[in-house]
Amino acid sequence: MKARVHVMLKNGVLDPQGEAVRHALGAMGFDGVNGVRQGKVIELDLADGATEADVTAMCEKLLANTVIESYSVEMA
C-alpha cells in the first residue's frame, strides 16, 4: 500500500523560494499570480497493514519539522 505525504511551510513562515518562483513567473509574462508556496511530496511504499497513524508518527518524528512545516497524509 502507498501513502503520499504533502509537506508545506506553515502560513506565516516566509517562503523565499516560492517568492522567487512568483517573481520569475511574473517576469515571463504570467500575470495574476498572487502567491506561490513551494512544498514537498513524499511517497511511501508501505507493507500491508500500515495505518495512517503510522504515517502520522513518521511525519511528526522525521518527515516534517512541525516548528515550520505542516503536513497532510493521503493513504492510497
Binding site: V13, L14, P16, Q17, N65, V67, I68
Partner: peptide, 10 residues
C-alpha cells in the same frame, strides 16, 4: 528552539 530556513536572499 526554532528552525533555520533558507536565506531570505536565496
Amino acid at each position: 528552539p526554532g528552525a533555520l530556513l533558507r536565506n531570505a536572499g536565496l
